[in-house]
């Protein structure tokens, strides 16, 4: 099967400063990959580059093929047909990722309408409404009537992230890019959102690119991880192997930190 997202020799720089250097990896349909690294390691840049949404002041070289279409240097019109269809993104901060002046029902309806029109179907009000309710159901949001008529600031952070996920799902993308989707949430909500993402990815069979600085979080939802440091991929492999036998010192510190954190929780928690 051909790769859904094929990144080769990707280098991203602003001015002379490289943000990502010679990064290569592929994601096949249905595959779940984690991109790990601390802030500033180039994770989010890679995600934005994959959808062709980096500002023009940032130079991208190398090759990114998304669903058979070259992204680097592609016209915005071409990319617009690809965005949503091939890839959808869930962002870190769900409050700022939602339009503050648009009711949640309408925000979810937007991508639904676009997808229905794209598929050649008639996007009737009823069809869109049904689909919106369906999505709200899928992401397990309570009180759909209230949620649909609420503004983003009127619901909780976890609920907002569920809304953002519903919007991404509305596109029925082949790959979901989740850029630190649980970082802005508290630990309990984080676990719930992870479970939801995991379940949705399994149900729909879409591929997942999960970006995080948090190794244990990534390990829960992906099969393979790539560790980024200062824009270089320093380690790559199945999540179990990287976790149990990390090669690179940096990965070792990440694993060690996570283990210590878990232990600390274990001793004080019970």
């Amino acid at each position: 099967m051909t790769a859904l997202l094929d990144i080769r020799g990707l280098t991203i720089r602003t001015g002379d400063k490289p943000l990502v250097s010679d990064l290569s990896f592929t994601i096949r349909p249905g595959e779940r990959i984690g991109l790990i690294g601390e802030s500033g390691s180039g994770k989010s840049m890679t995600a934005m580059a994959a959808t062709g949404l980096l500002p023009p002041s940032i130079a991208v070289t190398g090759s990114i093929t998304l669903d058979g279409q070259q992204v680097v240097g592609a016209a915005d019109k071409v990319m617009n047909r690809l965005r949503g269809v091939a890839a959808a993104v869930v962002f870190q901060e769900p409050l700022t990722a939602l339009d503050p002046l648009m009711k949640i029902g309408r925000q979810i309806a937007e991508p639904v309408r676009r997808r229905l029109e794209r598929d050649g179907g008639t996007a009737s009000k009823d069809a869109i409404g049904r689909e919106v309710r369906d999505l709200i159901d899928k992401v397990a949001l309570p009180q759909p009537d209230r949620i649909i008529n609420s503004y983003p600031h009127e619901v909780s952070g976890g609920q907002r992230q569920r809304v953002a996920i519903a919007m991404a799902l509305a596109c029925r993308p082949k790959i979901l890019i989740a850029d630190e989707p649980t970082t802005a949430l508290d630990v309990t909500t984080q676990a719930e959102i992870l479970k939801l993402l995991d379940q949705l990815v399994r149900e729909t069979g879409m591929a997942l690119l999960f970006i995080s600085h948090d190794l244990p979080v990534v390990a829960q939802v992906v099969e393979r991880v790539i560790v980024l440091k200062n824009g270089f991929a320093i380690e790559e492999g199945p999540v179990g192997t990287v976790f149990d036998k990390p090669h690179h010192d940096y990965t070792k510190t990440l694993v060690e930190a996570a283990r210590l954190f878990d232990e600390a929780l274990g001793t004080t928690g019970s």
Partner: peptide, 10 residues
């Protein structure tokens, strides 16, 4: 951010 978010969905 919501502009970028909206753009990513096409």
């Amino acid at each position: 951010d919501y502009i970028v978010a909206s753009r990513t969905s096409g």
